[in-house]
Structures are given as structure tokens and as C-alpha cells.
Amino acid sequence: MERRQVTGGDLVRYAIIFALLIFFLFPIYWMIATSFKAPGDILTRPPRWTFQPTLENYFYAFEQANFGLFIKNTLIVAVVSTAIVIVIGSLAAYSFARYDVGAGHLMFFILSTRMFPAIAVVIPYFVIFRDLGNTVIGQALSLGLDRLGALVVCYTMFNLPFGIWLMHSFFQDIPVELEDSARLDGYSRLQVLLRVVLPLVAPGLAVTAIFCLIFAWNEFLFAFMLTRAVARTITVGVASFWTQRGILWGPLSAAATVCVVPMLIFALLLQRYIVRGLTFGAVRG
């Protein structure tokens, strides 16, 4: 599939992409627009397209609802759990790809831990962390209820299977000849992994990291059930705009808008890797 000159086909393609982008981005636009609306401009018939923008909703979200804390919590939990998944998961994924430990059965078993409905394990997790929180280890590692460590564990749990499988598929694309020649050059197995394989697979790790971050960033159920106030995350904070006075659409949209920004920054930062990436498979031939 080589590149062609500018053709009618290109125009059609961009037209389709444009239409798709409208579908995918309009709700985001609507969310951002709502975040700048005064309460009286939100539930109207017909919807208002022009309005006097206000920052009121952002002030509300940050001053009244303490969103700064929630964002900080979520950042910590998402980044730490993603880091753990990438480090631990890449080792395991490499082992599965290169040595085929467990002949696929073990990998399948790992995936199956993601299949159990979260709701059925919320109460066990609740009890585990309640009891762990009262032990010395639990307190040292911040593993109790309403502690960030508990969420890190939960998010690591549900991202690990996904991460291992995705990274496994990237490791598989590394030609084994490369590793063999490195071994012959006197590298140890660990050095081969760290100095030869990991740099090659970095784009794949970046992709995995983005998705893990997003999943952790967006998780609701565990965050709701295992936190109270101190370790509350943004999704729970957003849900608390569903109030007795009705849904506070403005602050809710403001909070949701703010929540997207860090993910967008991550995506743009890692974009470089993805653009360059995933073409190494070509050498496999």
C-alpha cells in the first residue's frame, strides 16, 4: 500500500474523516460549551448556542467541591498503577513471548482475572483493605480504606491482564535473531532485555501506558466504594454533582473538561512514540 499523489480518493477520505470527527468530537464540544454556561443557559429549549460565558462552574468545582485534591489523587493513583503495570507486566509479557511460560494457559488465566465482574469483588476488596488498613504493613503502604494504595492495587489488578496481553503482542514482533546476536556479543539475558528489547518495544509500551492511564483515570466503582473523602478520585467527585438539587450540569461539565486535559497532554507527549512506533515489525520480514 504505497503512497499515491493527491487524488479524489484523498478528498473522499478526508471528507469521511471529517464527518467521523464531528461524531466523535461533538459531545466533547458540548461538554466544554456547557462548562462555560450559566445555570439558566443549560436546560433550555431550544439549546443555546451563543451565551455569555462564565467561569463560575470552574470556581465551583475547584473551590466548593475540592476538585484540586481529586485530580491530585487520581494522578497519583493512575500514574503509580500504570508504572507498576508497565514494569511488572513487561517482564511477564517478555517472558511469555520469549519463553512461552505456561504454554499460553498461564496467559489465559491472567486474562480471565479481568473477566470477573468488579461488583462481585468489591465487598471482598472492602474487607481486605479494611483489615489491611489496621495492620502495620497496610499503614506503611497506605493500603487501607480511603487510602490511595488500595486504589493503586485495584487498578494494577485490572490493568495488568490487559497490559500483559497488549505488550505480549509487541514483544512477539521483535525478531529473535536480534536477541541471539546480542547474546553472542556477550550480553546477559537481562541486558538483552533491558538494552536491546525494551528500547525496540518502547512504542508498544507507550501505547499500553496510555490505555492503562486512561482506564485508571476513568474507573468509578472501586473508587466510589473504597474511598470516602481523603482518597476520593475525580470520577467520584463528578458523581457527587448528581445532587439533591438536581444534576449540577455546569460544574459537572467543568470538572469533566478539566479531567480530559491531563489525558490529552499524556496522549500528545506519547504521540511522538506512537508516530515513530510500531514499524519495527517491518524488519521481521
Binding site: R228, A239, S240, F241, W242, T243
Partner: peptide
């Protein structure tokens, strides 16, 4: 501790069943 009304029941019950004394 603010909790949205739709889930207030289960959140309070869970903490009380678990005897955490959180609230």
C-alpha cells in the same frame, strides 16, 4: 462527606456492615 443520593444507601450500609466506624 458528600455522597450522591442515588448511591448513598449502599455506601452507608457498606461501611456499617463492615463496622468501620467511618461515619
Amino acid at each position: 462527606v458528600n455522597i450522591d443520593f442515588a448511591q448513598l444507601y449502599e455506601k452507608e450500609v457498606l461501611e456499617m456492615v463492615g463496622k468501620t466506624g467511618a461515619y
